[in-house]
Amino acid sequence: MSMVVNSTINGDPIEFSCEPDETLMDALRNRVGLKGVKEGCGTGDCGACSIRLDGALVCSCLVLGAEAEGRKVDTVEGMSDGAQLHVLQTKFLEHAALQCGVCTPGFLIAAQALLEKNPTPSEEEIRYGLAGNLCRCTGYDKIVRAVQDAAKTMNKRSKSKKTTGRKK
């Protein structure tokens, strides 16, 4: 029997119904229409379906839709600020950090979680931080560079924000 689930998805209150054994990945894609959540494996091995659940980075294929009741869900669709792309999105484009692009939403979400936890990661920390996301096209080189560049830009911005703050 279907269940009714109430969640906050990308900042908005959303009600959806799903089967009790349906994954959150399937519910987001097929019930809510967020197709930026990609299925690469369905077993938590590729990271293409990465989302944030109450802020925690998770594979939505390993979460039941029912578990999202009362929780906050964030997907790639909610990443940009209106028409303003997130720095990570811009840097992925500038560095050609995507080829086929199907892993990209998952990488962006994972990279965002990584930079929130560690705003100045080393190359090794980026590589381990993104190890849950498979990319078969790029060899990861340009992805790592895009994240490095995004971190630099974000730190510069938050620094200048702080400076302006002090002036006030």
């Binding site: 197709k35 930026g36 669709e77 995507l98 692009g101």
Partner: peptide
């Protein structure tokens, strides 16, 4: 930047 890029970083590209 590639012409299909923005769609691919915003989840809009349809596979």
């Amino acid at each position: 930047v590639r012409p299909d890029g923005v769609d691919k970083v915003t989840g809009r590209a349809r596979y």
